[in-house]
């Protein structure tokens, strides 16, 4: 893990992509994650401490995952190592999808899903929120671990 972190932090682009991904994740959570609501025509910011903590942690994991994958991919493109690892990419993708359950209504609405269907989606999200968060956390951590292993093997090869 330490070797993977050193390789990633040495790559300026990987750091930029990681930070950008984390910031984008935070912005998406705030805007699309029902943390802003309307009441009487004015905007109300919903700052539930446990939800803010969860989103901050998941955004951090998204950032770390994106940075590691960028570093691994750039090493691969430079011909100095192995691919970032399909398992890591898939796990990161699943984790990022799973950790954004509150964004699904907005995304599904854009795809033309009906209001009544979204009502059901919103109810399910409310009910299963913590399960989705735990699943997201586990898959993101697994994705980070797989990508870090791929990076370490790159380090060993070179």
């Amino acid at each position: 893990m330490r070797a993977a972190a050193t390789l990633t932090l040495a790559d300026r682009w990987a750091v930029v992509v990681g930070v950008s991904a984390a910031v984008a994740a935070v912005a998406l959570f705030v805007v699309g994650g029902q943390m802003i609501a309307s009441a009487g025509g004015s905007v109300v910011l919903l700052v539930a401490p446990e939800r803010v903590g969860v989103f901050a942690l998941l955004a951090l994991l998204v950032g770390v995952s994106a940075a590691l994958q960028t570093a691994a991919l750039r090493l691969r493109l430079a011909g100095r190592g192995a691919a970032p690892g399909a398992a890591g990419v898939i796990l990161a993708f699943v984790g990022a999808s799973c950790c954004t359950p509150l964004l699904w209504p907005a995304a599904l609405s854009a795809l033309g899903v009906s209001g009544v269907t979204l009502l059901g989606v919103n109810m399910a999200i409310h009910r299963w929120f913590w399960l989705a968060v735990v699943a997201a956390f586990l898959t993101l951590v697994a994705g980070i671990w797989r990508t870090a292993r791929a990076l370490t093997s790159t380090c060993n090869l070179s």
């Binding site: 995952s65 993708f93 964004l103 907005a106 995304a107 609405s109």
Partner: peptide, 19 residues
């Protein structure tokens, strides 16, 4: 890369649905 793609996809969807 997958994360970047997902981020762009979600951001686009949300912007579309909001705007």
């Amino acid at each position: 890369m997958a994360l970047a793609f997902l981020g762009v996809l979600l951001a686009g969807a949300i912007a579309w649905s909001v705007l």
